[in-house]
């Protein structure tokens, strides 16, 4: 290969154009990429499952519009784009990337349960969590200010100066107990499992 071959190679118009002008990078996201969740046309039932499963603080708000319909709103500066809210929604209100397509194809579902954990080293038995808990309020509206209750069907109550969890399965994951605890003794743990349903 002589010098002429080099000159012929570099004198091509395409090559010169690419050399002197900016090449376009792949500035489009691939289809499987989970962007910020977007609304579909289906109506939100305000079940708050998306809000309970969201791992990012303050990333999703369910607001009521002027016409009375509920709709989830994603806050971009807070959202991780993990797609949990899209996967958990039973009505398919939100969509992101190819999550919904995959879910329909493979018959996937999320099961989730919440476990209320009390750190007995920090719990001082003030009962703030028990009185704040919305599930407790529904079951036993007459709960005492100290969190004591006459019935053991509540989610948690103060027994012997300590908070004891009676029925873990009632927890809906609102984490009000975490927010109201003055000592940071309450923790609501979320266990999420992806399962494949039968009939796929």
């Amino acid at each position: 290969m002589g010098v002429a071959a080099y000159i012929r190679e570099f004198a091509r118009f395409d090559w010169l154009k690419k050399f002197f002008t900016a090449k376009t990078a792949p500035l489009a996201s691939p289809l499987h990429f989970h962007g910020f969740p977007e609304l579909t046309s289906t109506e939100c039932t305000n079940c708050l499952k998306c809000r309970m499963i969201c791992p990012a603080p303050g990333a999703i708000e369910i607001v009521q519009r002027r016409d009375g319909k509920w709709e989830p709103q994603i806050v971009p500066g807070h959202c991780f784009r993990c797609g949990y809210c899209v996967e958990i929604c039973p009505e398919e209100v939100l969509t992101s990337g190819d999550i919904l397509v995959k879910r329909r194809e493979q018959n996937l579902a999320f099961t989730h349960e919440f476990e209320v954990m009390v750190d007995t080293n920090f719990c001082m038995g003030c009962g703030n969590c028990c009185t704040a808990c919305p599930v407790n309020r529904e079951i036993d509206p007459g709960m005492g200010a100290g969190g004591t209750s006459t019935t053991d069907t509540v989610l948690m109550r103060i027994v012997g100066g300590r908070n004891t969890v009676q029925h873990n399965d009632l927890c809906k994951g609102c984490k009000v107990c975490e927010d109201t605890c003055p000592n940071g003794a309450m923790h609501v743990v979320r266990r999420v499992e992806a399962v494949q349903k039968e009939g796929c």
Partner: peptide, 14 residues
Amino acid sequence: GNCPISGCAFNRPG
């Protein structure tokens, strides 16, 4: 990223 806007996952009490 989210962190300079909101603190993202690190913005927890304490």
